[in-house]
Structure formats: structure tokens, C-alpha cells
């Protein structure tokens, strides 16, 4: 191949030859660049969650033992998950608020599954800086609005786990989930 290239170059005039040479050098360097970028791909993706971590990405929760007014703390994707059965009173309190006046406007309907309004499923991760709010356990401080209270920087969440007071910018996140039966949900 090399001799062929040189053979054709010999008959070309000087300017042509120079341009062609530059082209080959540029092409070679570009190929090296593309190769270098391609190598980055596995080096970057290796840090993403591995297959075993992704496989654990769903959690089943049994609801049968949770009484109205009670909540449980479980684990979803290695983070705390709050599952609460609201009382009639708590639902009424949540509905009484004008959603548009809130920092993160959402109604209780939007945060629960249709027909299962009493089941409030949220991440137990404060949207401020990621602490675990209190209020899921028996006798814990539920804050001024009767929902959750984050002790780190004093964020108060109401009975629909919406941010009402304090530094947190958003309501507690509602993960994707579905009811697999009347008394069980599959989160994730």
C-alpha cells in the first residue's frame, strides 16, 4: 500500500502532494481521537449501577399490617421509603389546603393512586439535602403540619407529605408504584 501511495504521489505536482499528505496525517490523528473517545465509553459507564444493583430496583411492600394513622419505613433502592395509611381526618386536612398556595402545588389526589387515597407512599428523603424526616415511627415528631418533620434543617411536611415550612424546595417524592393486590404494592 505504501509504495502505491508514493507512486501516485510522484506524478502529482508538489502542491497536490502536500495537501494529500496533510490529509492522511489529519485522518490518522482523527482516528486516534475517535478511538480515544470510544475508550471513554466503558470507562464512564462502569460507574453506573451494575446489573445486580438494578435487579434490586423493585421492592414489594405488604400493606396488611398498617393500620389507619400508622406508617412503616422500608427500603427502596437503598433509600428509606415511607408507606402511610392516612386517617379520614388527615385526608380532610390535606384536602382543605388550597394546592395553588403551596410551594410545590400538588393535591393529595395527584400524590396517591386513584381509589386508594388513604395510601400515601413517599420516599423518606428530605428534598432539601437528603436527610431522613421524622414522623413515620410511632411517637416521632410529625412537625407543625402533622406529616413529617426533617430535623436537619427544620422542614415541615403536611399529611400529604407536601412541603409547608422550612428550606426544602419540593414535596417528598412519590415513587412509581402499583397495587399488585388490595394489600400489596410493588414499588419501582
Amino acid at each position: 500500500m505504501a509504495t502505491e501511495v508514493q507512486g501516485t504521489e510522484a506524478v502529482m505536482d508538489e502542491g497536490e502532494g502536500v495537501r494529500r499528505r496533510d490529509f492522511i496525517n489529519i485522518a490518522a490523528v482523527s482516528f486516534a481521537g475517535v478511538g480515544g473517545l470510544a475508550v471513554l465509553y466503558p470507562l464512564v459507564t462502569q460507574m453506573s449501577p451494575s446489573a445486580d444493583v438494578l435487579a434490586q430496583a423493585t421492592t414489594e411492600v405488604d400493606l396488611s399490617a398498617i393500620q389507619p394513622g400508622q406508617a412503616i419505613k422500608t427500603v427502596f433502592r437503598s433509600q428509606p421509603l415511607f408507606v402511610r395509611q392516612l386517617t379520614e381526618k388527615e385526608i380532610a386536612e390535606a384536602d382543605a389546603v388550597d394546592a395553588s398556595s403551596l410551594r410545590d402545588p400538588q393535591t393529595l389526589e395527584e400524590r396517591t393512586i386513584e381509589g386508594k387515597k388513604q395510601w400515601l407512599v413517599t420516599m423518606g428523603v428530605c428534598t432539601h439535602l437528603g436527610c431522613v424526616p421524622l414522623g413515620a415511627g410511632e411517637g416521632e415528631n410529625k412537625g407543625e403540619y402533622g406529616g413529617y418533620f426533617c430535623p436537619c434543617h427544620g422542614s415541615h411536611y403536611d399529611t400529604a407529605a407536601r412541603i409547608r415550612k422550612g428550606p426544602a424546595p419540593k414535596n417528598l417524592v412519590v415513587p412509581e408504584y402499583q397495587f399488585t393486590s388490595d394489600t400489596a404494592i410493588l414499588v419501582g
Binding site: Y41, P42, T45, Q46, S48, S50, A51, D52
Partner: peptide, 13 residues
């Protein structure tokens, strides 16, 4: 083996 099976591109590394 976790690297070989589950980590993204782990086998390659």
C-alpha cells in the same frame, strides 16, 4: 466475578 458478570463493561476492564 461480580466485575465479570454485573459491572458495566467489567469483563472488558
Amino acid at each position: 466475578e461480580h466485575i465479570m458478570r454485573d459491572v458495566n463493561s467489567g469483563w472488558l476492564m
